[in-house]
Measured scan of single mutants.
Amino acid sequence: SIEEEIKKAEEAKEKGKTFIHGDFVATTEELLDELLKRLRKKL
């Protein structure tokens, strides 16, 4: 679910890890923020 993806992305951000969502690879905090923004729009 979208909620689960958001939670996983937030955890990755806290730990400074890379998060992959489909073909979107978030390797930096900026990219994770962008991904979180996109996911929240889908809610």
Score class of each variant (00 low, 15 high):
residue 33 D to M: 08
residue 36 L to T: 00
residue 32 L to P: 00
residue 7 K to N: 06
residue 6 I to V: 03
residue 10 E to D: 03
residue 36 L to E: 00
residue 24 F to H: 03
residue 31 L to R: 01
residue 20 I to L: 05
residue 38 R to K: 08
residue 17 K to S: 10
residue 4 E to C: 14
residue 17 K to V: 14
residue 29 E to A: 15
residue 3 E to P: 05
residue 2 I to G: 02
residue 6 I to D: 05
residue 18 T to Q: 11
residue 5 E to Q: 14
residue 19 F to V: 05
residue 34 E to M: 08
residue 7 K to Y: 06
residue 6 I to G: 02
residue 1 S to G: 10
residue 32 L to Q: 00
residue 42 K to G: 04
residue 24 F to T: 08
residue 31 L to I: 07
residue 24 F to V: 05
residue 22 G to D: 05
residue 5 E to W: 15
residue 19 F to N: 03
residue 5 E to F: 14
residue 12 A to R: 01
residue 1 S to M: 10
residue 3 E to H: 10
residue 24 F to M: 06
residue 10 E to L: 14
residue 27 T to P: 01
residue 22 G to Q: 07
residue 38 R to W: 15
residue 6 I to Y: 03
residue 2 I to W: 06
residue 28 T to A: 06
residue 24 F to C: 14
residue 25 V to T: 06
residue 3 E to D: 07
residue 24 F to D: 04
residue 33 D to A: 08
residue 6 I to K: 02
residue 41 K to D: 15
residue 26 A to E: 02
residue 23 D to F: 13
residue 24 F to I: 07
residue 11 E to G: 03
residue 25 V to K: 05
residue 23 D to T: 13
residue 30 E to I: 06
residue 18 T to V: 13
residue 2 I to Y: 04
residue 32 L to E: 00
residue 42 K to E: 14
residue 36 L to I: 14
residue 23 D to H: 09
residue 30 E to Q: 09
residue 16 G to H: 06
residue 13 K to A: 04
residue 27 T to I: 09
residue 39 L to A: 00
residue 13 K to S: 03
residue 39 L to V: 01
residue 21 H to W: 15
residue 28 T to K: 01
residue 20 I to S: 07
residue 29 E to H: 12
residue 10 E to R: 03
residue 2 I to F: 06
residue 11 E to H: 05
residue 15 K to E: 08
residue 42 K to L: 15
residue 14 E to Y: 11
residue 1 S to L: 10
residue 17 K to T: 14
residue 16 G to N: 08
residue 6 I to T: 02
residue 35 L to K: 00
residue 32 L to F: 14
residue 18 T to S: 10
residue 38 R to T: 13
residue 24 F to W: 09
residue 13 K to R: 12
residue 6 I to A: 02
residue 19 F to D: 02
residue 11 E to D: 12
residue 9 A to H: 00
residue 10 E to Q: 10
residue 32 L to V: 04
residue 22 G to T: 03
residue 32 L to I: 13
residue 26 A to N: 02
residue 19 F to P: 01
residue 26 A to I: 10
residue 18 T to W: 14
residue 4 E to I: 10
residue 5 E to V: 15
residue 12 A to P: 01
residue 42 K to T: 08
residue 5 E to G: 04
residue 39 L to P: 01
residue 35 L to F: 01
residue 36 L to V: 05
residue 32 L to M: 04
residue 16 G to I: 06
residue 16 G to P: 00
residue 4 E to M: 09
residue 20 I to F: 08
residue 40 R to G: 07
residue 3 E to R: 12
residue 9 A to I: 14
residue 43 L to K: 05
residue 27 T to N: 15
residue 36 L to W: 01
residue 4 E to D: 12
residue 9 A to V: 14
residue 8 K to F: 04
residue 14 E to S: 12
residue 17 K to A: 13
residue 41 K to H: 10
residue 28 T to V: 11
residue 15 K to Q: 13
residue 23 D to R: 01
residue 23 D to C: 14
residue 21 H to A: 07
residue 1 S to Y: 13
residue 19 F to G: 06
residue 14 E to K: 13
residue 4 E to P: 02
residue 24 F to A: 01
residue 4 E to T: 05
residue 28 T to H: 03
residue 15 K to L: 13
residue 8 K to V: 03
residue 26 A to D: 01
residue 5 E to D: 12
residue 33 D to L: 10
residue 27 T to F: 14
residue 23 D to Y: 11
residue 17 K to W: 15
residue 35 L to P: 00
residue 42 K to Q: 14
residue 8 K to P: 01
residue 32 L to T: 00
residue 23 D to Q: 10
residue 12 A to I: 04
residue 18 T to F: 12
residue 12 A to E: 04
residue 38 R to P: 01
residue 13 K to P: 02
residue 11 E to P: 00
residue 33 D to Y: 08
